[in-house]
Design a protein around this nucleic acid. Structure first.
Length: 567
RNA sequence: CGGGGUGUAGCUCAGCUUGGUAGAGCGCUUGCUUCGGGAGCAAGAGGUCGUAGGUUCGAAUCCUGUCACCCCGACCA
């Protein structure tokens, strides 16, 4: 490609409303332009990256035996009503009516649609297993789109849906996809981790996320410092304390704590460590009443764990302050398990401390020297808290360290949640109707491009891995319009590289060297060849890898260039 | 959804408090010079100041509505 014929619009200034590096660089390098909140156009150079990512995904999905389809982005409401998600999805799903006043949604995901097609054509176990995938545009009306294409509303996703006669076969395909994803992420050249995940509102049992490690990542990952354990903090189990609860040593005592509401305030006011305080959170119970969750003062509630507890309503709903006032007779800052009017579920860690401080269920008062069993009932104990750094790894190997990650892929064993709701049925080898098991597997294609930049850039711009660079090599001729020698040399090299099948960009704009170099660095082309009279006089080109500090001279031959490209 | 903020040239922004002929830098066009890390000089083109209404002799500026966009929050008592 000749740069004189290729629209590339770079800018020196960093756009004001871009926070993360990838967003800034994509705007500055002319990869994307914003159309509206969470809506981005991919300009020619950016689209080349996207296509290369898609090509790798296609190759690996095909290799893994999946088959490509393309489903509509607009879905009739009936399908979503059938699965029940028309009601469940909420504001995130964009809905609208057609000219006949029929309801439609812009698809945020495609379980319903693929299930519909499956039941049209699949009758027999002989046709299974099958794994359909597509690379397609989705729309999710995020409450707050941000970080450019990293959390956009419209985005491109590779989604796949597999169907199986039994769980064993689903587990086999899940593992197949797991390995396929690992190959895809490896080929993309990113540093990634596979972590245990919560399956969220998509449902299902086993689920793992593929995270690209990056400081700007939105997700927090709990990773063992010496073992193989890795999980999204949302899904990380916490081990119960190893040591038994100490025996009580203090007497129960009520103390005035005027105006001290938060755990931090109370701990400081009474000069006790935060770890010696128990806090109570009041949520709606599964039976419609209220339930209190007890946590150690320094711990945070893991809402997902709490919502899964049989006594707790799902989704987790906090009691309104007025409701707490009515039931406890005090404000929320002074709650405690002693003479608590509602059932208490305590986190393992909170249940394991003695002589603790907690609210007195009376405004401006707390209790100290409180002990489970002696001063209040022994609580039900459960794992309710967020894991923290330094905790023992849940698999018993090593301690937990936190990393930030960008979720680039997510694989699920859905089971029969959708296949049952959508009334799928195939006959097995005994002629019995069976509801197939489903798996689903997603990769955020547009997000991956941003994630790679987050992980691979420097002060001058992006640094693309060869596999997905918009161009592998850029040719920068110095004084092309002045020197016939340079012009002939660069045109020859360009033609031969094109003939060799190399994605080559020729900067024939006639710009000054500084402009050419700055643009080449900004758009992140991995290899750069400079052709000038000085070098040619020595029969040499100048070669520089985007990551290298200094250029080197190589023989002025196409073969030498191809060798540098590793082709 | 709650709170805060911003809409002025293609881009980044100033001007608004205190109403009086629309500004800068970057980019763009032309010419000359320059030519190995975002050149210099000169001359130009380019804006119904988001939008609707109000106040006023007069509104980018003050007031009201509205739309768009951005930020923070939306569990942790």
């Amino acid at each position: 490609m000749r740069l004189s014929r290729f629209p590339l619009h770079t800018t020196k200034e960093t756009p004001a409303d871009a926070e993360v590096v990838s967003h800034q660089l994509m705007l500055r390098a002319g990869y994307i332009r914003k159309l509206g909140a969470g809506l981005y156009t991919w300009l020619p150079i950016g689209l080349r990256v996207l296509h290369k990512i898609e090509a790798i995904i296609r190759e690996e999905m095909n290799r893994a035996g999946a088959v490509e389809v393309l489903m509509p982005s607009v879905h009739p409401a009936e399908l979503w009503q059938e699965s029940g998600r028309w009601q469940q999805m909420g504001e995130e799903m964009l809905r609208f009516k057609d000219r006949h006043q029929n309801d439609f949604a812009y698809g945020p995901t495609h379980e319903e649609v693929i299930c519909h097609h499956f039941r049209q054509d699949f009758r027999s176990y002989r046709q299974l297993p099958v794994n359909f995938y597509q690379i397609q545009t989705k729309f999710r009306d995020e409450r707050r789109p941000r970080f450019g294409v990293m959390r956009a509303r419209e985005f491109i996703m590779k989604d796949a849906y597999s169907f199986h006669m039994d769980r064993e076969d689903l587990a086999r395909e899940y593992e197949n996809m797991r390995q396929t994803y690992a190959r895809i992420f490896t080929r993309l050249g990113v540093d990634f981790r596979i972590v245990q995940a919560d399956s969220g509102n998509i449902g299902g049992s086993q689920s793992e996320e593929f995270h690209i490690l990056a400081g700007s990542g939105e997700d927090l990952l709990a990773v063992s410092d010496s073992g193989s354990y890795a999980a999204n903090v949302e899904a990380a189990a916490c081990l119960p304390p190893q040591t038994p609860r100490p025996a009580p040593t203090q007497a129960l005592e009520k103390v005035a704590t005027p105006g001290q509401r938060t755990c931090e305030q109370v701990a400081k006011f009474l000069n006790v460590p935060l770890t010696g305080k128990v806090k109570l959170l009041v949520v709606k119970g599964a039976d419609g009443g209220l339930v209190a969750l007890a946590l150690r003062g320094d711990h945070q509630l893991n809402e997902i764990k709490a919502a899964k507890h049989p006594l707790v309503a799902s989704p987790l709903t906090f009691a309104a302050p007025e409701e707490v006032q009515r039931v406890f007779g005090c404000e929320v800052g002074y709650l405690g398990p002693v003479r608590c009017p509602i059932p208490v579920i305590a986190d393992h860690a909170a249940a394991a401390i003695a002589d603790f401080v907690c609210g007195a269920n009376e405004n401006d008062h707390h209790l100290r020297g409180v002990n489970w069993g002696r001063d209040c009932r022994e609580p039900q104990v459960a794992d309710l808290r967020m894991i923290v750094e330094g905790d023992p790894s849940p698999d018993g190997v090593g301690r937990i360290k936190f990393y930030r990650g960008i979720e680039g892929g997510h694989i699920f064993q859905l089971g029969r949640k959708y296949s049952a709701a959508m009334h799928l049925s195939v006959l097995d080898d005994k002629g019995q109707a069976v509801v197939p098991e489903m798996g689903c597997y997603g990769i955020g294609v547009t997000r991956l491009a941003a994630a790679v930049i987050e992980q691979s850039h420097d002060a001058a711009g992006m640094i693309w891995p060869d596999a997905i660079a918009p161009f592998r090599v850029i040719l920068c001729p110095i004084g092309m319009d002045k020197s016939e020698t340079v012009r002939v040399a660069v045109e020859t090299l360009y033609a031969e590289l094109v003939a060799a099948g190399v994605d080559v960009l020729l900067d024939d704009r006639g710009q000054r060297p500084g402009v050419m170099f700055a643009d080449a660095d900004l758009i992140g082309i991995p290899h750069r060849i400079v052709i000038g009279d000085k070098g040619l006089a020595q029969q040499q080109y100048e070669y520089k890898h985007r990551r290298a500090g200094k250029p080197e001279m190589i023989p002025a031959t196409t073969a030498a260039v191809l060798e540098k490209l590793g082709t």
